[in-house]
Structure formats: structure tokens, C-alpha cells
């Protein structure tokens, strides 16, 4: 059985020292090993931005696509080969700005893949512009007078869009993060995991210390029930989104692929794709 070391490759990440993304990478590698995947049966599909590079840093199949489109590529891949384990990943700009349409629809479509967002509330790779996750008043190169727009609330959006799995982690707590990615990988449906992954270069507000001070673990809230969507929404709102843990999981709803009528039991990659002569003749006759 593969260990987390088998998910390491020889590529040295080009992230800044201290970047939160290192821990997310480690957590994905550990979680993949813990749930028993082999590197060759895992594919990581990522977007564009610092965090988008993650697909190149893990020893598995990896596809670094175009900005904001990791989710449709990942869903297409999973549709082609449902035996494959698919993780989509990217930053908050990728998933909540340019790719927000895909994020909402991937959530409601509920194909069985895991989406890990590395949320640093800033555009890092383009050197420090505001993100939809930046707080109002946040000063960046593109918002010198402070951001006017309010910050997007991804957890509330996900819950509203009909998510069957919503979690949020913090990159310094690898243990908790690994456990929630494992839970996401084991979830039968779309698992949405937002991870606070601080940018040490461009975000001097939402720092490691800031998160330590402001985050609440759901595990510490007495009586928290992650199967209760209403409680999930209330708790997230009460804490202004600053919670970590598995926020909501619906284990009843079946995944998209299990609902498609006529969809092959075998992965599409394994079926004979030629039509028989009888099948073809039948199709021709329908036009006559």
C-alpha cells in the first residue's frame, strides 16, 4: 500500500517560504495515502495561480489547466473514468472569481470529486491585487483606497447551492486538514473544502496569527451536528465564516453519476465504443 511518501515527486514548489500551500499539499498527500489510493489512480486537476501549481507537486496524474476551469476539467475526467479518484484544486481567485460559475454548478451537480480551495484572500501570483475573498477595506494594489466590495462567503454560498459536503480547514493544522480531506475523499458526491492558506508575501492582514486568534473549531462547539444544514448555516453566519472542521455532510443524496439513466456500470474508458451493425441499422431506420 502506498504511503504519503509515494505521493511525493522531485519537483521543488515555487511557492514562497512559509506559504500556506505547502501544508495543503502535505495534507492531500497524507489523506490520499490514508484512504488507500495508489498514485496512479489519483488525478489532481488544478487552476491557475500560485496554488494552481499543486498538480505538478504531487506524484499522481496531474492536469494544470486554465484559469478558473479546474472544475469542469475534473468533472469531465470523472465522467470518463469513474474509477479514478479526482481532486480539483486552486485558489480563491480561481474558484470564487473567474471560476465561480463552475464552482456553484459543480456543487449542485454533485459529481463525486473533491475540491480543495487554497484561500489566501489575495491575488498572489499577479503580485497583490484584491480577491473576492478580501475583506471590505482591504488595501491592495488594485484597491489603494481599500476594497469597496464585501468579501464573498464561500461556505454560505456552498450551503445555499445544495452542497452535500462542506468543510473548512486552516493550513497550519495539518492533522485536522488531513482528516477533513480524507472525509471529503470518502464522501460519495462533491466535497467542497475551503482552506485558509495564508499568503506571507502579500497579505499582511490575514496572517497565521490572525487566523489563530479568530478561528473557532467546530469540534469545540458543544452539540454541533454536521448533518444539520440549518445549524451549519447558522453557525457559519454567527462566526462570520471563521470556523474549521466538517461543516455539513449529507450522506443520503446519491452522486450525479449514480443518477444518470443508462450510464455504463464500467468506466466509459473501458467500454467497447463501436456500434454493432444491428445498432447502426436501427439508428438509420429511425430516419426513414
Amino acid at each position: 500500500m502506498a504511503t504519503f511518501k509515494d505521493f511525493r515527486n522531485s519537483v521543488k514548489p515555487n511557492w514562497c517560504p512559509g506559504c500556506g500551500d505547502f501544508s495543503v499539499q502535505a495534507a492531500i498527500q497524507r489523506a490520499a495515502a490514508n484512504v488507500g489510493y495508489e498514485p496512479s489512480e489519483l488525478a489532481i486537476i488544478s487552476g491557475i495561480g500560485c496554488s494552481g501549481r499543486i498538480s505538478g507537486y504531487i506524484n499522481s496524474y496531474g492536469f494544470h489547466g486554465i484559469h478558473g476551469r479546474a472544475l469542469p476539467i475534473a468533472q469531465g475526467l470523472k465522467m470518463a473514468n469513474k474509477d479514478l479518484k479526482v481532486i480539483a484544486s486552486g485558489g480563491d481567485g480561481d474558484g470564487f472569481a473567474i471560476g465561480m460559475g463552475h464552482t456553484i454548478h459543480a456543487i449542485r451537480r454533485n459529481i463525486d470529486i473533491t475540491y480543495v480551495v487554497m484561500d489566501n484572500q489575495i491575488y498572489g501570483l499577479t503580485k497583490g491585487q484584491t480577491s473576492p475573498r478580501s475583506a471590505a477595506g482591504f488595501i491592495t494594489k488594485s484597491t489603494p483606497g481599500g476594497a469597496i466590495e464585501p468579501s464573498l462567503k464561500p461556505l454560505e454560498v456552498a450551503l445555499t447551492a445544495g452542497a452535500t459536503f462542506v468543510a473548512q480547514g486552516f493550513s497550519t493544522d495539518i492533522k485536522e486538514l488531513t482528516a477533513m480531506i480524507e472525509a471529503g475523499l470518502n464522501h460519495k458526491g462533491f466535497s467542497f473544502i475551503n482552506v485558509f492558506s495564508p499568503c506571507v508575501t502579500y497579505n499582511k492582514v490575514n496572517t497565521y496569527d490572525w487566523f489563530k486568534e479568530n478561528l473557532t473549531k467546530l469540534a469545540d462547539i458543544e452539540g454541533y451536528d454536521s448533518s444539520n444544514r440549518e445549524m451549519a448555516m447558522q453557525t457559519v453566519m454567527r462566526h462570520e465564516g471563521l470556523v474549521t472542521g466538517v461543516i455539513y455532510q449529507d450522506t443520503e443524496t446519491t452522486s450525479y453519476q449514480d443518477k444518470i439513466k443508462g450510464y455504463s456500470e464500467l468506466p466509459l474508458t473501458d467500454i467497447d465504443i463501436s456500434l454493432s451493425e444491428d445498432q447502426f441499422d436501427q439508428l438509420i431506420k429511425e430516419f426513414m
Binding site: I45, P72, A74, Q75, M79, G101, S264, L268
Partner: peptide
Amino acid sequence: GGAVIQTEDEIAAATMAIGANYG
């Protein structure tokens, strides 16, 4: 045994098709 997904837009349609071809 196949399937069609009506996507949220044409960008998703093309990239989803790319993902499936990759698969």
C-alpha cells in the same frame, strides 16, 4: 452507456470535453 452534461456555459462544455478526452 454514455452520457451528456448540459453545462453552465460553453467554457465548461469545452473544458469538460477536454477533461473527458484526457481521461
